[in-house]
């Protein structure tokens, strides 16, 4: 881009979201790793937190991420049936379903929190979905709803 083009960008276009990603140790984290070693590009907006299983992810984690100022949250686990702990992701799926609907009900843009499955072999899929999630969050703009007054 030329300098002029950069200047032409509006504030909102320049803004890059900060996204926290909770990845399960056995599939998604390995998937992210695979994306890395295969040199598949995905947006640098995500910061990864490795958790043992998507079943480990409490609703607190997600809400706390939002209150702490992250613009978006991505949660990724093994595909149903592939869980290292047999059913962790299935229990988690119900929890995510409720959380997703409740967030929407409370008026928090549903796109802020994204759930996905990605296996250890799906580096490409991981990159695509992260790109998609980043786009969704970027469209929503900064997460201001949980900001405290100072």
């Amino acid at each position: 881009m030329t300098e002029q083009a950069i200047e032409k960008q509006t504030e909102s276009e320049k803004w890059e979201p900060k996204i926290i990603a909770f990845l399960c140790n056995w599939c998604s984290y390995a998937g992210a790793d695979l994306a890395g070693v295969s040199r598949i590009q995905y947006p640098p907006n995500i910061r990864i937190v490795r958790v043992p299983c998507s079943g480990r992810i409490n609703a607190y984690f997600i809400i706390k991420s939002l209150t702490d100022g992250w613009d978006g949250v991505v949660v990724s686990g093994c595909h149903p049936g592939d869980c290292h702990y047999i059913s962790g992701n299935l229990v988690a799926r119900r929890r995510f379903a409720i959380l997703k609907e409740l967030l929407e009900f409370f008026g928090i843009e549903p796109g802020r929190v994204n759930f996905m499955w990605a296996s250890a072999a799906e580096g490409e899929r991981f990159a695509v979905l992260i790109r998609k999630a980043t786009e969704i969050v970027k469209k929503l703009g900064p997460n201001k709803k949980f900001e405290k007054k100072w």
Binding site: P80, S87, K132
Partner: peptide
């Protein structure tokens, strides 16, 4: 329900490739 699960639970809210 929150202590239980089914393989075929709906997962329409999951992010999928286009």
């Amino acid at each position: 329900p929150m202590t239980d699960f089914k393989m075929e639970d709906a997962e329409e809210f999951m992010l999928e490739e286009d």
